[in-house]
């Protein structure tokens, strides 16, 4: 039940971990990614990214500024221009 999640900024690899779900602020609306999500690519708007460690528990919120998200069979990769813990 784990989704591999990576958050990368140009300066460093910020996070690389197994999580339950991630809610990403896309340009066309927020979307949640669980394990086994279909291949997907979206532009990310400036906003808050929420990492869920369980169905209802939010383990971290991260403010991301611009970038894009890619979901592949390997998991979710968010390439953000800048990111900071909120």
């Amino acid at each position: 039940m784990a989704l591999h999640f990576e958050l990368v900024t140009p300066e460093k690899l910020l996070r690389s971990e197994e999580v339950y779900m991630v809610v990403v602020p896309g340009t066309e609306g927020d979307f949640g990614v669980l394990q086994g999500h279909a291949p997907f690519m979206s532009v990310v708007r400036t906003g808050e990214l929420a990492i869920y460690s369980g169905p209802t528990t939010v383990s971290a919120r991260i403010r991301v500024e611009g970038g894009f998200a890619e979901v592949s069979e390997k998991g979710l990769t968010v390439l953000a221009e800048s990111a900071s813990e909120a």
Binding site: F40, V43, S72
Partner: peptide
């Protein structure tokens, strides 16, 4: 491998976003 990838908004828009980056 990624023939079935969905794009949001679409390929061109993402590309236009990516180029300056």
């Amino acid at each position: 491998a990624s023939a079935a990838v969905e794009y949001e908004p679409d390929e061109e828009a993402i590309l236009a976003e990516l180029l300056p980056r």
